[in-house]
């Protein structure tokens, strides 16, 4: 009787003290994502959203003779302490600009002569060879460059981490026709046990 009671008692305790984890899907763009002091998926979304809105409002991309404008992606420097893929930011901006109908991004021209899509560049070169084209291919009207910076501060038991997203759009004359900066700051309090 006692053994049976012990068994059922342990069975009741299992869900409480067991190693079971509950994992669920969340909307990645929804209001219930986790907030951490590290740079995360929603920070890139907030930054991209602000950048795209600023760029579309500025009208800088409307000034090319031939529409839509052609954009090449230049260097996006990660100056944070974290290892991040800058495409988390850049790809969102590229997709949004593509959807706007105002900008097309070249995938055959990249920093240091490295094409994002080497096969596409080969096809482009083949086509130009057989078409016996005299002039150069359409060059990008703009390049997009930028930097992501991290700044940490601490006072008493509060730690603040700020992420600064900086982007510049440079035209084919080497002039920055649009620039924007977006800051995201997060504060976390030290817990009783540890940080």
């Amino acid at each position: 009787m006692i053994k049976a009671f012990n068994f059922y008692f342990l069975l009741l305790l299992f869900p409480v003290f067991g190693c079971a984890t509950h994992t669920r899907y969340v909307e990645p763009t929804g209001p219930r994502t986790l907030v951490t002091s590290e740079i995360n998926i929603q920070d890139f979304s907030y930054a991209a959203e602000d950048m795209v809105q600023s760029l579309l409002t500025s009208g800088a991309i409307d000034k090319t003779q031939q529409q839509p404008a052609v954009l090449a992606i230049s260097r996006i420097v990660n100056n944070t302490t974290q290892q991040i893929d800058t495409d988390m930011l850049v790809k969102k901006i590229r997709v949004a600009l593509n959807q706007s109908g105002k900008v097309l991004t070249t995938t055959t021209m990249g920093l240091g002569g490295i094409a994002e899509d080497p096969l596409a560049r080969d096809i482009q070169q083949e086509r130009e060879f057989y078409a016996d084209k005299k002039g150069p291919p359409r060059l990008p009207d703009y390049t997009l460059s930028g930097k992501i910076i991290e700044q940490s501060d601490r006072k008493d038991n509060v730690r603040q981490v700020a992420y600064i997203f900086q982007l510049s759009l440079t035209n084919d004359e080497g002039l920055a026709v649009w620039e924007e900066e977006k800051q995201i700051a997060k504060q976390s309090k030290r817990s009783v046990i540890g940080w």
């Binding site: 929804g30 209001p31 979304s45 907030y46 991209a48 959203e49 901006i93 949004a96 959807q99």
Partner: peptide, 9 residues
């Protein structure tokens, strides 16, 4: 649908 449509705090 846009890639940047998120809930903004």
């Amino acid at each position: 649908h846009t890639p940047t449509s998120v809930w903004i705090p």
